[in-house]
Design a protein around this nucleic acid. Sequence first.
DNA 1: ATGATTTCCTGTAGGC
DNA 2: TGCCTACAGGAAATCA
Length: 271
Amino acid sequence: MPELPEVETIVRSLRKLTAGRRILKYHPLRNDYIHQGLEHRKKVTNSVIQEVERRGKYIAIHLSNNFSLLHHLGMSGRLLLQPGSDPLEKHTHLRILLDDGSVELRQRDPRRFGFAAILPSVELKTFVSWSHLGADPFRLRAPRFYALMAGRKQAVKSFLLDQRRIAGLGNIYTDEALFRAGIHPVRPTGQISSAEAGRLLQCIRTVLRESIVAGGSSTNDYQRLDGTLGLFQHKHRVYRRVGLPCPICHRKIEKLVLNGRSTHYCPGCQT
DNA sequence: ATGATTTCCTGTAGGC
DNA sequence: TGCCTACAGGAAATCA
C-alpha cells in the first residue's frame, strides 16, 4: 500500500528518469481506470514532462502543454518504467509511451483502488481530493497539529488517516509512528497533550524519513519505479507483527480493528 | 458537524 | 487437490 514514503520514492525516480522526455502516446487499456479527462488523451502527445510533484499520496506529472497527469496508486497500484518491448503484465491499465516508444511508464493495479486522470494544470487545484488535502507532515507545525486534534473524540489513528487533516499517512506509518510516540491508537485526539502532539509529529517525520531512505515498505504489492523492492518492511516494529515481542518491553504485539483497519500496537508501551 | 460504516476490487492464505 | 471464506485497505459516499 503505497503511502508517503513509497510515493516519494517513485516520484524521485520519475523526476530523475523522465524529466525532459517527450510523450509519444497516452494509452489507456481500461478506460474506466481514467477517472477524469479521458477526452484529453490525444492532446498530451508530443508534450514534454517538465516537473513531477507529490502531494500526500498523489503524483502529478506536469507537462509542457499546460496539462497535468494525476496518478494515485490506491493499495495495489504500481508505476513502472520499462522497455516498451516487455510483455504486457496482467492488470496493466495504462501505458504512457515515451520518446520513440522504446520506453514506457506503466500503471498496474490489480485491485483498481488507484486511478489516473488528465487535467488542464489550472484545474488541478479544483480537483476535489487533491484540493482538500491537508498539510504535508514535513511542513506542518506542531501547534497547528495540536490545534487540529484538540476537542475531538476521534481515535488518534483515525485522525492520522484522514488525508484532509494531514496528508500521506496510511495504515503502516500510523501504526509505526504511534508506537514510536508511545501513544495508543484508540486514544481520543482531544486527550493528547501538547507535548505528546509534538512528540508524535516528530515520530511521524522520523519514520517517514527513515522509510524514504530505505526506498519504502514492500509488504504486498509495492515496487519501486524499476520493479525492485523497498526495504523498510524489515524495520517495522509493530505493523503485522502480532505475537512477536515488542523491541522495547518485549511484551507481545497485539492487533485490534479500528474503522475496519487492522491496527498493531504494543500494550505495554502505548498508553 | 462529527465520526463511524459501507463500498469498490482481486490475489493470497488458510481451513477442511 | 479443490473449493470456500476471510482478509488486505485508500478514499468517496452514505448513514447515524
